[in-house]
Design a protein around this nucleic acid. Structure first.
Length: 580
RNA sequence: GGCGGAGUGGCAGAGUUGGGGAGCAUGCGAGGGUCUGCAACGCCCUAGACGUUGGUUCGAAUCCAACCUCCGCCUCCA
């Protein structure tokens, strides 16, 4: 390790300097050390490194150890140096450990002893008093989360248009915002979570016509399917799941308000459109300006619109389509208006967090802002969250590209918890590449976690003062950093496997936050098995063979089970099994 | 064309915005060891990376510049 290399370099002396970090402020830090290095010049043989000492949970005084390796003749020079004004503090903290010339010195052992501490410069410790930071698409920066009402968080997520089964991209949204909600709750907020269902739109009407079934029969079917998929993925029910068709009246009222404010107009075609040019902030979420958006180049423009980017609020119905009455004639709502109307109805305005897929940022969410802020004359949403896409072969998974995998198809092949875990191993804003190899990878990884839980079923509460939990919290507080949070779980698994009795409980308890690791370990490891009796019989037979030292027969049975994908494990005189 | 995001070991994937320096994630996979009747699990150890080229600096994955490549949005989309 480092110390060995140093000693080989012919160095003679170690110097330890202890610095402090008070409330995240480095009192004596690297800057001062560099003064030493500079002044002592050749006298410094090597800068060994920085280490954090102590497991002071209060962390009022995190001690930082800076290790320098000095040549003997530099020690006097060092002492003169630290006597200078401005460096007294460092002088008080500095400690000459002593001269040693060989390997395996006392100091070397000290070094080894430190390995029990997790050491990462000052970064994670700074996050000790972390508060939740959210990357806000509006402004493109991480911001401290400050709720509008103390202790309360109100969030709205754009859900599904129900004309087909959910694909993995939808599954990702469900899981990600489920975790956002759980983390807000753990952070002490009373959360109100709304996720809408779009049950009326062009695609639904088209699909229903193709299937020759009523629109509501189609949507009911796919809402049920969505519920099943969500439940399988461990997604808790939102507090409200409003359906667009149940909120037409509020939408009509909202459109009326927009018309009063001259932000909406009825065009010659009979549609009611939103006049984007009359809303000053249009484009602030997506960073687009109206003049850059050259709509119409790629799509037929309705000539009756004032501006090609004007979007439909109320659509005149064609014969045979579902319709509702309105001051502008029989028709149905445009797509964007439902989210403005339903969020206002259920959460008020403004509310805290609005989420959805990246592809909704423009135009859908931009239009929501225009509608809600235009009508109410006040802010719509404080924090906008957009998750990245699921990709297949480096391409966005989408219905139009036809490269999608439905959740239910994937669940035929992989355990739902593996799929959820796979989603959480990537940061929500990153792209997530789907492939069987990655799912297999996730399965192996999750197996490691469950293996560490084998002997603990009792669920305990999280001890948030425990170092792993502190790291977990810091990761989650940093814009829902589930990948790093998951890495902490693996460290807990290692701790559990090396005799830390509390670690397994912590592991399971933190699993609650991510919605994983709640099953009985053997149930996960043995996976939907229906051959338990047979397996037990084979294990007993093998046990008998082993007793009479007939290892050939015993190994034959092991192989027989292995051929069926069952792995036997002998431990502590007992044999357990799991699926490969 | 406009706007935005990204390039990190065999693979996945953090870290880059805040303070540049290490003992540098984490997992899968690989190699070695240990444990075992044989295995598996576990444990211990090892290897390996920061798109390219320059610049700033004592020191850059991190800052600056240029370039290359990929992806997304601008049209229904999570």
């Amino acid at each position: 390790m480092g110390a060995d290399r140093l000693l080989e370099g012919g160095a003679r002396l170690f110097v330890l300097a202890l610095a402090r970090i008070d409330h995240g402020q480095v009192v004596v830090g690297l800057g001062q050390v560099w003064i030493i290095l500079r002044e002592l010049g050749e006298g410094v043989d090597r800068f060994l490194g920085v280490a954090l000492l102590g497991e002071d949970h209060a962390l009022e005084e995190t001690r930082l150890r800076i290790v320098l390796l000095l040549r003997e003749d530099a020690v006097d020079a060092l002492e003169r140096l630290v006597a200078l004004p401005g460096l007294e503090q460092l002088g008080r903290l500095i400690e000459v450990v002593g001269a040693r010339g060989q390997r395996g010195t006392e100091h070397h052992r000290q070094q080894g002893g430190q390995q029990t501490h997790s050491v990462i410069f000052s970064r994670p410790y700074e996050r000790q008093h972390s508060i939740l930071k959210i990357y806000n698409s509006l402004g493109r920066a991480k911001q401290d989360f400050a709720p509008l009402r103390p202790g309360e968080a109100r969030m709205y997520v754009c859900g599904m248009t129900v004309y087909d089964y959910c694909h993995l991209g939808h599954g990702r949204v469900l899981v990600i915002f489920d975790v956002v909600r759980r983390w807000l709750r753990v952070s002490g907020y009373r959360v109100t979570y709304v996720r809408n269902i779009t049950d009326i739109d062009d695609k639904i009407i088209k699909r229903a016509a193709e299937n020759r079934e009523p629109v509501d029969a189609l949507t009911e079917r796919f809402i049920r399917a969505m519920d099943e998929d969500a439940a399988a993925l461990g997604v808790e029910k939102p507090d409200h799941e409003p359906r667009a068709t149940q909120y037409v009246q509020p939408m009509v009222e909202l459109i009326g308000q927009l018309e009063e404010k001259a932000l909406a107009y009825q065009s010659a075609s009979g549609d009611v459109n939103y006049a984007v040019r009359r809303f000053p902030g249009y484009g602030k979420l997506s960073g687009k300006s109206l003049d850059e958006l050259r709509a119409g180049e790629r799509v037929d423009v309705d000539q009756s619109k004032e501006d090609p980017l004007d979007f439909v609020l109320w659509k005149r119905s064609k014969p045979g389509e579902p319709t509702w009455k309105s001051p502008w004639g029989e028709g149905r709502p445009g797509w964007h208006i439902e989210c403005s109307a339903m969020s206002r109805q259920l959460l008020g305005q403004p509310f805290d967090i609005h989420g959805g897929g990246q592809d909704l940022q423009f135009p859908h969410h931009e239009n929501e802002i225009a509608q809600s802020e235009g009508a109410a004359g006040k802010k719509f949403v404080n924090y906008w969250m957009h998750n990245g896409f699921v990709r297949v072969d480096e391409e966005k998974m989408s219905k139009s590209l036809g490269n999608f995998f439905t959740v239910r198809d994937i669940l035929k092949k992989y355990d739902a918890e593996v799929v959820r875990f796979f989603i959480l191993r990537a940061h929500y804003r990153s792209p997530l590449n789907y492939s069987d190899a990655h799912l297999e990878d996730a399965k192996s990884a999750l197996t490691r976690l469950y293996t560490a839980l084998k002997n603990t079923n009792a669920s305990v509460a999280v001890d948030w003062n425990e170092p792993h939990a502190v790291r977990f919290k810091a990761a989650m507080d940093d814009d829902f950093g589930t990948p790093e949070a998951v890495s902490v779980l693996f460290d807990l698994a290692t701790a559990a496997n090396t005799g830390n009795a509390a670690a397994a409980g912590q592991l399971r308890a933190l699993g609650v936050v991510l919605g994983i690791l709640q099953r009985d370990a053997s149930q996960f490891l043995q996976g939907g098995s229906d051959a338990d009796a047979w397996v037990s019989e084979r294990i007993a037979a093998r046990e008998a063979a082993r007793k009479r030292k007939d290892f050939k027969a015993a190994d034959d049975i092991r192989q027989e089970l292995l051929d069926k994908g069952i792995i036997l494990e002998d431990k502590g005189g007992k044999t357990t099994w799991r699926r490969k």
